[in-house]
């Protein structure tokens, strides 16, 4: 009961209030707020960031987890600890670091500028920031699962004539799939909701470099509360959709 009350106080209450405030002035007002050009652009930019960073981090996560669990190489422990850096470092610092490296006066700034590539205050920088902050989730979910399944099934496949790729696709991947799915859900949620790092590198140009979270802030500061709440609800719905799709997959995937 206590846990439920806590959950209600911390989670359900505030989120419920956001939903309530959104539709306070009717469905039409909320609908109009989320269909402004800036809101639509923010929506699609957020989807774009997720669509780029989640697959990349999933592939990287599986590869990194496999390397850490199944192989011995110098610097393995260091590599393992470095993967937690995005959890440890504040997102704002991550954003600043990206500016320092890729900004006009950064390490690659001149080279990038000479080649007409703009990273900071532009979408590439936001992609980098999103990838960075959502990097560890898949690795951290997959590592324990890989450890648990052990190597016997993979070895069995090998003695039956399977190539490393076949073994990975037909044995390892199905065995770790729930770890991967869970990691993907967490990565997606983080990529959707990232504010700090993206905020630093984006430049906040409405209709150009504004994600949904930045749009919420933008509307809030412009005293457009309905707009802010409505965009929040869109974010919440995206997150809920992600969770729901995992639950659906899970049910379909049973047994095993």
């Amino acid at each position: 009961m206590g846990a439920l009350g806590y959950l209600g106080l911390i989670l359900l209450g505030p989120v419920g209030l956001v939903f309530y405030r959104t539709f306070e002035h009717g469905l039409a007002a909320a609908w109009n707020s989320v269909t402004t050009p800036d809101a639509q652009h923010a929506f699609w930019l957020t989807v774009e960031l997720v669509a780029i960073s989640v697959p990349l981090n999933t592939i990287f996560g599986i590869a990194a987890a496999t390397a850490i669990v199944r192989h011995r190489f110098p610097g393995r422990r260091l590599f393992d600890s470095l993967l937690d850096l995005p959890f440890a470092v504040s997102p704002v610092v991550v954003g600043l670091a990206i500016v320092l490296v890729y900004g006009r006066k950064g390490w690659f700034g001149t080279w990038l500028a000479d080649h007409g590539i703009q990273v900071i205050f532009s979408v590439p920088g936001m992609v980098l920031a999103t990838i960075f902050v959502s990097l560890p989730f898949v690795v951290r979910e997959v590592i324990p699962v890989l450890r648990e399944i052990g190597t016997e099934q993979e070895e069995a496949a090998t003695t039956l004539g399977a190539s490393p790729f076949t073994t990975f696709r037909r044995i390892t991947l199905p065995a770790i799939r729930w770890g991967v799915v869970y990691g993907v859900v967490l990565t997606t949620a983080r990529a959707l909701g990232e504010f700090g790092a993206v905020s630093v590198v984006s430049g906040h140009v409405a209709g150009q470099t504004e994600t949904l979270t930045l749009h919420v802030q933008d509307r809030f500061e412009a005293f457009d509360l309905t707009g802010a709440y409505a965009a929040s609800v869109v974010l919440a719905l995206l997150a809920i959709a992600t969770l729901a799709s995992m639950t659906l997959l899970r049910r379909r995937g049973a047994p095993a």
Binding site: A157, T159, S163, A175
Partner: peptide
Amino acid sequence: ARNRDVGFVFQHYAPFKH
């Protein structure tokens, strides 16, 4: 190992669980 044509039965059988 995959080209040795050796049948191997593991101690814990290593069934493909899925």
